[in-house]
Nucleic acid binder design. Structure first.
Lengths: 356, 356
DNA sequence: ACTTGCTAATAAACCGGTTTAGAGGCTGGT
DNA sequence: ACCAGCCTCTAAACCGGTTTATTAGCAAGT
């Protein structure tokens, strides 16, 4: 008889009330006298009862879970510190909220199906939208699935969902300004795959800062946030007709690979080339030379986004949220450029580059 | 009336059968004639009906989800490529299995509570146990919660759960042997926090290979899998009374930080110091010098573990599984040691080290 | 012709909560 | 003294599936 777990009926019986009363007491709803409520809760605590979330989920038609669909290719996913940090932040906010995080890693083609599955099976009450694209097809999709969401950053197209934003611009602008102040005139950018709003934001900040300083447009290479991509983008720039004296990367991983690529070519960082990353991976401070980079509080971003999603899921309105912007961390990978204006002969570089 | 979603009752009505018949047809259980089953499934498909997993979860007292509790401190978590790769593998196996992954990131102190919450709320049907410790308190905990589990690697103490194993030993043994063959005699090891079975495995392989070759025990420093830890462990070794000519690290991140630390000291890798990592992070091939390291198929490991967990959760027996072992990848961070036997004077190193 | 034995299908109970409709008891106004 | 109105609490319906007990129908065995 006393076989399985304790149910609400057991508690009701023990407290001498009905199931409904226990439910009301538990959910602190009016209709239960204060002392009755307390007695019920005490009995429940004594018996070690907590409501079964499955039953709860069914009767309230809620899942008590949020979804995070990650559509990055495994290689990129494995290198990037973003998701672990984000997830840690999400969890920090979720603990004791009664919600839980359901993760789904999918291929880029399977992305929509991922959301559809979560919605169809009633697995989640809302989702976090990361890696936002300028015109993001997931927004209409989620609307049609009537699945609430918050977006990390703001998409270009109209969105009915609250945006939780971190502005990358200030750090990139500061980085480029810093390089200009050091005397650099040829500042290239290794960005990410086009379409992503953070990629666009970083690229735009770079381009506009150059333009504002009256400098010519720098060279732009599209990377893919992988080490391999960072290395080959760097080689392309360094082997090009007009190699830059500084490169601003859209990620630390690409920048770190860039460091190695420069070294391969016999270049010394920061003497021959200045390098700036983005993310402030824990590793950034521990490569040689220590990487100057932009830091964002991804953990806090995850927290803020999750908090907003909880609000939204409980039916309350949720305005957009502006998180602290990215900030520039200067370390040892940036310095004044080598004077090269004097003689246009490429002797220095070719001599060393030929070692490779 | 036709308000919300389609339920099993709607399908039953449309197909002219009872709810039970639809359920039986759906779950391919005997008791439904073949043509009836087909008709039901066709009607269901036409109506676009899929069973609500919440309702299913309640009536079958299953959650149709698995849990992964991660207890690493955020800093370590953010750097390490292990979890993203593992999770990608888990998801690859989970897609279309009907199961979903519930993630929980907790502090080391909150670890047990994490499992308790998942069990108490009936959120998951089983868990994956990673970062296994030699005597792991989670095993008795899960037994007392009667939560099925599979362990990634085998714990030291008795365990009723299937172990899905990847043997790190061969790669570390091969690495040390390789270094010995190159002529190294002072081979240090930067390990991980004690207690973890993979940490022990790597350390043991290193120590035993040295012993088998008749070499003295090398120096051992306990790292923490962080870049910072790798850097300071390396400095400790290099600044010690008897600096090694080669260091075998328990992770790539520590090894990469070690590369930078060596450089700081004016040492050239591999001329003055050979370095071997572990993990084969995508970055490993793109640092300078490209890192020799040990590769394990973490993605495949996650898949295998998940497959085993699905079997286990369906009530079938699941034996232990042996996955392919780690394999040594040789790149450019290992080479013959500088001859130092000739003269015991430490001139070479001190001269360069003093640059710092 | 009459059990016996199957198979196919249904009705109803069940999972463990939430929620609604309504019953009783008490207070207060007139 | 009586009814309205409120508060407290209960019984029962409900969420959307699964599962069990039972019935109907039909072929085979004697």
């Amino acid at each position: 008889m006393r076989s399985g777990r304790i149910t609400i009926a057991d508690v009701a019986r023990a407290a001498g009330v009905s199931k409904g009363a226990v439910s009301f007491a538990l959910n602190q709803r009016p209709g239960v006298a204060v002392d009755t409520r307390e007695r019920i809760l005490r009995v429940a605590a004594d018996m070690g009862w907590t409501p079964d979330q499955r039953a709860r989920a069914l009767s309230t038609s809620r899942a008590l879970a949020f979804g995070l669909v990650i559509a990055r290719p495994p290689e990129i996913l494995a290198e990037d510190a973003f998701f672990p940090a984000l997830i840690a932040g999400v969890e920090a906010e979720l603990v004791n909220s009664g919600y839980v995080l359901v993760l789904q890693v999918v291929t880029p083609e399977g992305e929509h199906d991922g959301y559809r599955r979560l919605a169809r099976d009633g697995r989640v009450d809302g989702v976090l939208l990361t890696d936002l694209r300028a015109d993001d097809s997931r927004i209409p999709l989620l609307q049609s699935l009537s699945l609430p969401a918050v977006t990390l950053n703001r998409t270009g197209s109209a969105s009915p969902f609250p945006a939780i934003m971190v502005d990358d611009t200030p750090a990139v602008t500061a980085a480029v300004r810093h390089l200009i102040d050091l005397g650099h005139r040829d500042i290239a950018h290794v960005g990410g795959p086009k379409g992503y709003v953070h990629v666009v934001a970083r690229r735009t900040a770079w381009a506009q800062t150059l333009a504002a300083a009256g400098l010519p447009t720098g060279e732009l290479v599209e990377g893919n946030f992988s080490a391999r991509g960072g290395a080959s983008a760097t080689r392309r720039l360094l082997d090009g007709p007009h190699p830059p004296t500084a490169i601003v990367y859209a990620s630390d991983i690409m920048a770190i690979a860039g460091l190695a690529a420069a070294r391969e070519r016999g270049l010394d960082v920061p003497r021959d080339l200045s390098v700036v990353g983005f993310d402030d991976t824990p590793l950034a401070a521990h490569v040689h030379p220590a990487l100057s980079t932009a830091r964002t509080d991804v953990f806090g971003w995850g927290r803020a986004a999750t908090k907003a999603l909880v609000t939204l899921a409980s039916g309350r309105a949720q305005p957009d949220v502006q998180c602290p912007p990215a900030e520039l961390i200067l370390r040892d990978s940036t310095g004044p450029p080598r004077r090269r204006r004097v003689a246009a002969e490429p002797s220095t570089r070719s001599e060393q580059g030929s070692q490779e």
